[in-house]
Design a binder for these strands. Structure first.
Lengths: 226, 226
DNA sequence: CTTGACACAGAACAGGCGTTCGAGTATTAT
DNA sequence: ATAATACTCGAACGCCTGTTCTGTGTCAAG
């Protein structure tokens, strides 16, 4: 009475191929493929065979089907994609320049080109729905914050920070922009680099220290190194 | 010679109604409506009239159409969110442990809980649609790659790297996992830290060096510092 | 009033598409 | 071997769907 194990218990190679194709087709065309299109791209010569596999995939819960209507297949698993968040890209942040912070008018009207999309599921819960903005790091002056040239930092505009917040500050006395962890001590501020091997810098309380925003996320797209 | 202003210059009421219907239909059915379905729900009795408005909406850039194929309408502007990408979270990467790489079976069947969503618009174009996986960085051993404890790195599995790629390698001789920029030189490999202030390490070509994957993105969620 | 652009309806056509049926082949259990 | 099951193919049927053509009524400019 042993079970047959011709194909691995789960999805066969062809099931997987069909699933992948539906996903990639949907991404590219914004609408599902037809049965014949699935067949062509998965080396299946008969529509009935595609239908045969689609039935199985539906039974296993991998897809849903609107029978009788064209292109009525949809993936079930990739549906639970969470919402996304669009934050305006305000410009660049670099050592010698002040930090560009958005005005209230900047929110609400910004082009998709000048913005960054972030998945909700990656957002710290507290920051959802807030007014965030993004800056592109220019130069290698933020390396003591584990941030490199070309990285994207996402900030929440704020003037005051709590101990432990990673903040973007403008030190007008030093004419310097920097990203650091913020700590308020007896009579001075301690700006702690994110890299534990580097030493903190101390700012006297009567020195000018403008907190421009709190960092909530850092994104680095690693491309070619040239 | 004044122009007629029968309808407000922009979208008429009917255009808007069609646009809204396409959006709601797409949300509910996960695929676009047919011309006749649009007609029914917008009180248009003729398919040609729907086609008439669709042509206008396309000319104005509000929708795109895949002519000749069923349900080939899609919204352009009202798609405020681009697509997202779901990559499986395979585990943690830390200095003393080998890098967990996924098998082919791991793709396709992973729960939403053990995965990371990334916006397509943040992906380097080359990597779209590829098999990517994510690892959570544990410990502070990757700081020479500008990666910190708790960061999420997204990798593309590969055995060979080109010069300049940022790779995850397992140095079995040193019993060490690390992230570095990869360069092949005359008789050795140069592993260059991302932080320009740090010096590269050199690996002789007969030493064991297993490239496990190429880093395509780093994500850091900055929460509280405690 | 005539003209013409515009909005709309209805019908017909051709191809797209899901479905079904009959038949054939391969693999496995008995 | 034999039967059962899994898998594949090709063709045909018929609805679905986008396209196109003809015709009608409205409204404003000339």
């Amino acid at each position: 009475m042993m079970m047959m194990v011709r194909k691995s218990k789960g999805l066969g190679e062809r099931h997987q191929k069909i699933l992948d194709f539906i996903a990639s087709y949907q991404r590219e065309h914004k609408h599902p493929p037809s049965i014949r299109e699935i067949g062509e791209h998965c080396d299946i010569s008969s529509t009935s065979v595609v239908n045969y596999y689609l039935d199985q995939l539906e039974k296993n819960g991998h897809i849903e089907r609107d029978r009788k209507i064209s292109r009525g297949v949809r993936l079930t698993a990739p549906t639970p994609l969470g919402d996304m968040f669009r934050v305006p890209m305000m410009g660049v942040i670099q050592a010698g320049e002040p930090i560009p912070v958005p005005t209230n008018a900047d929110f609400g009207s910004f082009t998709p080109e000048d913005s960054v999309e972030v998945a909700m599921s990656l957002m710290p819960a507290k920051e959802k729905g807030k007014e965030l903005f993004a800056l592109k790091v220019q130069g290698e002056s933020m390396i003591d914050a584990m941030v490199n040239d070309g990285d994207i930092v996402i900030l929440k505009p704020t003037q005051d920070a709590r101990n432990g917040d990673m903040v973007a500050v403008w030190l007008s006395d030093r004419n310097e922009t920097t990203l650091k962890f913020f700590f308020k001590e007896k009579d001075k501020y301690r700006l702690q680099p994110a890299n534990p091997t580097m030493k903190p810098i101390y700012i006297d309380k009567n020195e000018a220290l403008e907190i421009k925003g709190k960092v909530v996320m850092v994104i680095r797209k690693v491309e070619r190194y040239n």
